[in-house]
Amino acid sequence: MSTIRLTVNGKPVSVEVEDRTLLVHLLRDHLGLTGTHVGCDTSQCGACTVHIDGRAVKSCTVLVGQANGTSITTIEGIANGDELHPMQAAFRDNHGLQCGFCTPGMIMASIDIVRRHGAGLTEDILRQELEGNICRCTGYHNIVKSVLDAAGRMTAAQAAE
């Protein structure tokens, strides 16, 4: 057992867990943040994607010890109160989700994709970048539309700052 201290969605957290605990289970089972999902056991589906210190990471592939001292953001932590993150809003506005199970991971991964590519994000690059996130429902058509829409909103917002 170890004591793990980290920041989750801006709040300091300290939990006593087995060393072999995965970050995704810490979030889901110990902190009740069930928006982060588990869809596989081989780091392929991306349903578990969260941000560690601002970068998208598959939380099913991170032991809690590796996350010690980091700052984690989950799907529950990206909206600003009632105001959705532009990526969340774009997924809703473009019907970028159906069953919603892949969605938190898609949104978290996509925010990072837009962060890295900014205005240079094209459909081709986006489709390559989404390789680590599997959706069985949407055929990706509207996910691609959503992320490109959000990229426009996010870069416009940045430019305005």
Partner: peptide
């Protein structure tokens, strides 16, 4: 239904 899914507040069995 989208609001709950995009904010991580869906309620699936494993949750």
């Amino acid at each position: 239904e989208d609001k709950r899914f995009i904010t991580g507040r869906g309620r699936y069995v494993d949750d």
